[in-house]
Simulated scan of single mutants.
Amino acid sequence: MEVVSENGLRIDRPLLTVTHLTQLLNYITGFGGLIVPLILWLTTRDQVDGMDQHGKAIVNLQLSLILYVVLSIPAILLLGLGILTLILTGILGFLLPIVNAVRAGRGEAPSYFMTIPFIS
């Protein structure tokens, strides 16, 4: 039996959780951490309750991480601060999807701090 929310959308917490975890493809294959969640979000945002909110948060995080990496490369010349930024970006890019996958499994809203709201 399919569970439907008040607004008529299907509730699919496992799909929301998997969508967050697909960001980790960057660490496994080197790419796909933006493309796969983007495809999942665009194809299911009108059918799954919460997918639009979670999808926007995922895309905003991935775009923010890309921007931070691009900006930290020239910052390496400034006393090595770019290296620290790259390390922190790598750690946040690994931990935040896991934390928010757990939150999605509980039915909570995503919480990505330090993200630039490219898509609102």
Rank of each mutant, 00 (worst) to 15 (best):
Gly32Ala: 11
Ile91Phe: 12
Arg13Glu: 04
Thr115Phe: 01
Thr43His: 02
Ile35Leu: 14
Leu40Trp: 03
Gly30Thr: 14
Leu79Ala: 12
Gln53Tyr: 06
Leu67Tyr: 05
Leu71Gln: 08
Ala104Gln: 05
Gln53Trp: 04
Met1Ser: 14
Val59Lys: 01
Leu65Arg: 07
Ile66Leu: 15
Ile58Asn: 09
Pro74Glu: 10
Trp41Asp: 03
Ile87Arg: 04
Leu77Pro: 04
Thr44Met: 05
Leu63Val: 10
Met51Cys: 00
Gly8Glu: 07
Ile116Arg: 00
Val99Ala: 10
Val99Gly: 01
Val4Thr: 15
Leu25Pro: 07
Ala109Leu: 09
Ser120Val: 10
Glu108Tyr: 02
Leu25Val: 13
Gly105Pro: 07
Asp52Lys: 07
Leu15Pro: 00
Leu24Asn: 06
Leu34Tyr: 09
Thr22Asp: 01
Ile87Pro: 04
Leu88Met: 15
Gln62Thr: 12
Thr29Ile: 15
Leu84Trp: 13
Ile66Ser: 08
Ala101Pro: 02
Gly107Ser: 01
Leu61Glu: 11
Tyr68Leu: 15
Leu81Asp: 00
Gln23Asp: 05
Ala109Ser: 10
Pro117Tyr: 10
Leu79Arg: 02
Gly50Pro: 00
Leu81His: 04
Ser64Gly: 07
Tyr27Phe: 15
Arg103Asn: 09
Ile98Trp: 05
Thr22Ser: 12
Val69Gln: 10
Asp52Pro: 02
Ile11Ala: 01
Val36Arg: 02
Leu95Tyr: 11
Ala75Pro: 01
Pro117Met: 08
Gly80Ser: 07
Met114Ile: 15
Asn7Asp: 15
Leu88Phe: 15
Ser111Gly: 11
Ile76Glu: 04
Ala109Glu: 11
Val48Pro: 00
Ser120Ile: 10
Gln47Val: 09
Ile66Trp: 11
Leu65Cys: 09
Leu84Cys: 04
Leu21Cys: 10
Asn26Gly: 11
Val18Ser: 00
Leu15Thr: 11
Pro14Gly: 06
Leu24Cys: 06
Val48His: 00
Gly55Pro: 04
Ile119Leu: 13
Ile35Thr: 13
Asp46Tyr: 04
Leu86Gly: 13
Thr22Leu: 12
Thr17Gly: 08
Phe31Val: 13
Gln47Ile: 08
Tyr112Pro: 05
Gly30Val: 13
Ile73Trp: 06
Met51Phe: 03
Pro37Val: 07
Ala104Met: 06
Asp52Tyr: 02
